[in-house]
């Protein structure tokens, strides 16, 4: 199934190029040169790529409007501006941010990440090593035996947090605050302990973990 991208860009040169590049990569691109009609088209899109400097409506205004219209569609902001306040203002509604001149490979990679994150709530099963994960039913199955692996609520939450941020290194502070929802306390070992138990459930050899990788002194990572 082709993934639909709503692309809003006023510059004809860049617009043409990005549209062609994304189409080559298998996306269906709906390119608008201004933000006026965007709100009407967002419902049909899976992803939004939005340029900040738009004629007429300001990119931030368009972004907020789109988020209101379709809160589940991820928005990637493209900006040629660098002032810090732009960054903060943009990130309030945008899911990611890329400054010009961006590399097309990077844009594609970011879109993949956004999709994967959105896909976690779309119901399609995910594959991770020997695991088959059904996000909607919160179920993890061993793909070799077809048996369900039972995990505690916290273990599931941690695993899903890793899957939402695949490829990123997550520090214990980030994990704790995302899963427990409260500020991390200095020296707390909770995350380490939970990850040890989680590895005992999902790793083939918990002493040589392959799914949740330890980055010494920094954190953990689940590779894409």
């Amino acid at each position: 199934m082709a993934r639909r991208v709503l692309y809003i860009e006023d510059d004809a040169d860049i617009g043409k190029w990005v549209k062609e590049d994304l189409e080559r990569r298998g996306y269906e691109v709906d390119w608008l040169v201004s933000g006026e009609e965007a709100a009407a088209r967002v419902a049909q899109a899976d992803l939004v790529v939005l340029d900040v400097m738009l004629p007429g409506l300001d990119g931030f205004t368009v972004g907020r409007r789109l988020k209101k219209e379709a809160p589940n569609v991820p928005i990637l902001m493209l900006s040629a501006r660098t002032a810090v306040d732009d960054k903060l203002q943009g990130l309030q509604f945008a899911d990611d941010y890329l400054t010009k001149p961006f590399h097309p490979d990077e844009l594609a990679a970011r879109l993949e990440v956004l999709q994967r994150r959105a896909g976690l709530s779309s119901g399609e099963p995910l594959v991770c090593a020997h695991l088959l994960i059904h996000p909607e039913q919160q179920r993890v199955v061993d793909s070799r035996t077809g048996e369900e692996i039972s995990l505690t609520a916290k273990q599931l939450q941690i695993l899903f947090y890793f899957l939402r941020n695949r490829g990123q290194i997550l520090t214990k502070e980030q994990i704790y605050e995302a899963v427990w929802g409260e500020p991390y306390m200095d020296g707390d070992k909770t995350v380490n302990v939970h990850i040890r138990y989680l590895r005992e459930r999902i790793e083939l050899d918990p002493s040589d973990p392959r799914i949740i990788e330890t980055i010494r002194g920094i954190g953990y990572r689940v590779r894409p």
């Binding site: 510059d11 040169d13 860049i14 190029w17 990005v18 062609e20 590049d21 400097m53 040629a80 501006r81 660098t82 002032a83 732009d86 400054t99 010009k100 001149p101 961006f102 590399h103 097309p104």
Partner: peptide, 25 residues
Amino acid sequence: RRDLIAKLSHDLRTPLTAIRGHAFG
């Protein structure tokens, strides 16, 4: 001045992005 800087930055980066697009092409 802030606005000018932002606009100037945009005006400089936009052609740069286009150049990259064509180079990539």
